[in-house]
Design a protein around this nucleic acid. Structure first.
Lengths: 211, 211
DNA sequence: TAGATTGTTAATCGATTAACAATC
DNA sequence: TAGATTGTTAATCGATTAACAATC
């Protein structure tokens, strides 16, 4: 809501969320608390940073007690929009597209894969884990009828840019791109390129410095 | 080699690399150049930033001309370690594991999936796009025999932490984790959690601020 | 009360941007 | 030569860390 977050803060909040929901949440009773020092130590950061981040999403703690876990979790969910529901269209029913279509966790974040599209005739009409593969020709209709706000691309590099332009022409302004190419889009379109090689580069950089 | 890069610089270098190899590289003759302004405009950043980044990896430009494209590409590859060859073991032969095993681009970055492991009996012995699925029992032997430096995890959340510990016990100090859970590892282990929800959080945050 | 923890201001640190002389 | 672009120093900006009074 009234929270205005920068990128590092956003990333850290996601880490807190994972740490708390995976390691703390169900265990203690509903009223259980967590301190900034606990979180900070696990993540290897400064406790003041944690307090600043939580203050940024209007979470209030109690001196000598800490923060109420359920409040922290709910506030993060709300501020990051996980309590809303978004429909996405997934284009590209290859291996990666199939993996994402089946990714069960998305429902915890309010994301629903409303349609799975491909242009290969032999795939159209088949089922992938409950999702019927439809023709890419249906794109514009589906976007309009199902109030789609997000397009997820898992197509070959050659097809990605053209498809991204078609998707935005159809009215979608947010693209999550898993195709192995960097999309070049006007500023009004939100693009997140999830190119595997970026992660690889970081790992290699540290690997090389070690051996 | 003598390059010491921070995280933002590393990420930007990867962007330059993609932009140049995808949009510029093969087109002009080998001697063709690119200027910091060209790169900066496309990526929406400051030209001085580009010059700083290239200086950080010891790339020299020519006043009034720019930077030689082939030099830029080669220097990035060398500094990020793409000119070396690394063997990885991929654990988890599900949909996502299959997608990664088949990911052809890895060879441009010097990464080879040397082994694909799973613990499901019905998968062991089957072929996935040229990779024979082997039992997880083979992990320690394979790591030793094939000089494996990197483990890629695409397993269910419940299995990830235990497996990560087993992998490090076997001598691997770098983990690329695609399992939907955050690994908690000692500082000497390099972990990159590629949790999809982090990307999703950023997209949602911007989406919510728009509508 | 004593001890622990928050909330926040001030100090530090580091990264980005501006500016411009040097150079082709 | 004039114009464009690099390389780098200085100025700015923003994020992180230190410190500590307020509070339970």
């Amino acid at each position: 809501m009234g929270c205005n977050l920068n990128r590092p803060t956003l990333e850290r909040l996601m880490q807190y969320y994972h740490y708390i929901t995976e390691h703390l949440h169900p265990h203690p009773p509903d009223s259980a608390n967590v301190s900034s020092v606990q979180i900070a130590e696990l993540l290897g950061i400064d406790p003041a940073q944690v307090r600043k981040d939580l203050a940024a999403i209007n979470v209030k703690g109690q001196p000598n007690v800490g923060y109420k876990i359920s409040t922290v979790v709910e506030s993060i969910r709300q501020c990051l929009g996980f309590d809303k529901n978004y429909n996405a269209v997934l284009i590209g029913a290859g291996r990666l597209g199939g993996a994402i279509a089946c990714y069960d966790e998305f429902r915890f974040y309010g994301l629903k894969i409303a349609a799975l599209l491909d242009n290969a005739l032999q795939k159209i009409g088949t089922m992938i884990d409950g999702h019927k593969v439809q023709s890419v020709e249906m794109l514009e209709d589906i976007v309009q009828q199902q109030n789609i706000k997000l397009a997820i691309l898992t197509v070959p590099a050659e097809a990605a840019q053209k498809l991204a332009e078609r998707v935005t022409a159809a009215g979608i302004e947010t693209i999550w791109n898993f195709s192995p190419t960097s999309l070049v889009m006007p500023d009004n379109v939100i693009v997140r390129n999830e190119h595997l090689s970026v992660g690889l580069a970081q790992l290699f950089y540290h690997l090389a410095r070690r051996t």
